[in-house]
């Protein structure tokens, strides 16, 4: 009699602990996702300044700047879906990489202290976005582990937890960057 009772208590305790840790893991994923957005916003805020300074020196790159401006507007628009945002994000990354490469052709711009500071801030936001994405992937992996490993997987599906996807850059986006950087500017 007592044995069965004891067993039930044990299972109930297990359920509670697992439930809580699953909730904790999922919240960590949400938190990490939100942090990426924070870092991305920092980067978006930098773009207008960078463009302003670069424009005065790079008189022949007007196309690049107009494209950047419109991409940025689309990406920060509240109506953009998550997938669209990621896609736009990657395009902006590509264009900014081109811009930084083109700067090599404008020694006065390179020497400008204002630009140098902005470039450093840019590098920093890039690095922080990368860090935020890695933190997100770590949180997702931890969550997925809890959802799929035994014995917590028994409770996971019961409480409605599902596997989430880690952040990956689409193959095509990766390729686009390389080609443009070499041939366009």
């Amino acid at each position: 009699m007592y044995l069965i009772l004891g067993l039930l208590v044990f299972v109930a305790l297990g359920a509670i602990l697992t439930y809580n840790s699953l909730i904790g893991a999922r919240n960590q994923v949400e938190n990490a996702f939100a942090t990426i957005d924070v870092m991305l916003k920092k980067r978006y805020d930098l773009i207008p300044n960078l463009v302003e300074v670069a424009k005065t020196y790079m008189k022949h790159e007007q196309d690049l700047f107009t494209n950047l401006a419109s991409l940025r507007a689309k990406a920060t628009a509240p109506s953009a879906t998550s997938d669209e945002k990621v896609h736009l994000e990657n395009q902006i990354s590509g264009m900014m990489k081109n811009l930084m490469v083109s700067v090599e052709n404008y020694p006065e711009l390179k020497a400008s202290e204002q630009f140098s500071l902005l470039q450093r801030s840019w590098n920093e936001t890039e690095e922080q976005i990368s860090a935020a994405r890695r933190a997100f992937n770590a949180a997702v992996t931890q969550y997925n582990n809890a959802v799929e490993k035994f014995p917590s997987n028994i409770f996971a599906s019961m409480f409605g937890h599902k596997r989430r996807e880690v952040f990956v850059i689409a193959e095509t986006e990766r390729q686009n960057v390389n080609a443009k950087a070499l041939f366009n500017s």
């Binding site: 990490a32 942090t35 870092m39 690095e127 922080q128 990368s130 860090a131 935020a132 890695r134 933190a135 770590a138 949180a139």
Partner: peptide, 10 residues
């Protein structure tokens, strides 16, 4: 800070 740790430890 999880993100800062990764910012430092690239």
């Amino acid at each position: 800070d999880q993100v800062e740790a990764r910012y430092i430890l690239s």
